[in-house]
Amino acid sequence: MSGVFSPSRAKIAVRTLRTDRWWLQPAITVAVLVSFIIYATIRAFEAKFYFAEPLISPFYSPCLTSACPTNGSLLGQPFGTIAIFGMVISPALFILIFPLGFRMTCYYYRKAYYRSFWQSPPACAVAEPHKTYTGETRAPLILQNGHRWFFFAGLIFNVLLSIDAVLAFRNAEGQWGHMSIGTLVLLTNATLLWLYSASCHTCRHTIGGRLKHFSQHPLRYKLWTWVSVLNHKHPTFAWISLFGVALTDVYVRAVSSGSISNLYFF
């Protein structure tokens, strides 16, 4: 018997005496993340309806294979067509690994999935079901320390998706100076992703947190105080930017498959 049932501890037979609905939050987290994963997987393998001039889905940008229409490939198509056993690999699979790695190693999402999926712990002062525990000291979880590399990769994606949003100020014929619902959707998505990155703990550390003497770096100190304000809201940005990406894809898919038309303001 270990943990709260160890011999020296107060003899209490139940794993928690909490009377509130402590299981609700982990349950919601599992439901939302599982839904997102299912949706993203289906869309990644669908390999169509991700481009409708001038809109491209964030799941498929930058589109690096020749499966994409050339005007949808921001960085060219360096991978050409890659097929395994005659099956053409969806262009989404080349890039989703980066945003996925970014979110998997995010300090906030770590909290969210350690609590909900791994039940370690399911909620505060609710005994976890595991016999042993080593935290993030061993492989594979020690790799969480690589979050900063995904953070920098994430910045590159933010730039590309911002360019996508700028390119959306064109009409379907490629002429500039137009704006549609799709433009707003892409702009919102890019903004939310920037807020998510800017509020990141690694960002906070890099911009100033690692300094010992703020007084010697007034500019970095100022930036650090701003990032700290955003950082307080990091969990919120983590969720709304996740919904942002999914809803942007839903919109682009709807336009691309012809179910709705992209309404232009001008």
Partner: peptide
């Protein structure tokens, strides 16, 4: 320090509202 998996229960219970984890 590596044993902590930043699940924030310390922060939740601190009566001084110290933002221990963040």
């Amino acid at each position: 320090l590596g044993m902590c998996n930043i699940t924030k229960c310390c922060t939740e219970v601190c009566p001084e509202h110290i933002r221990i984890t963040d």
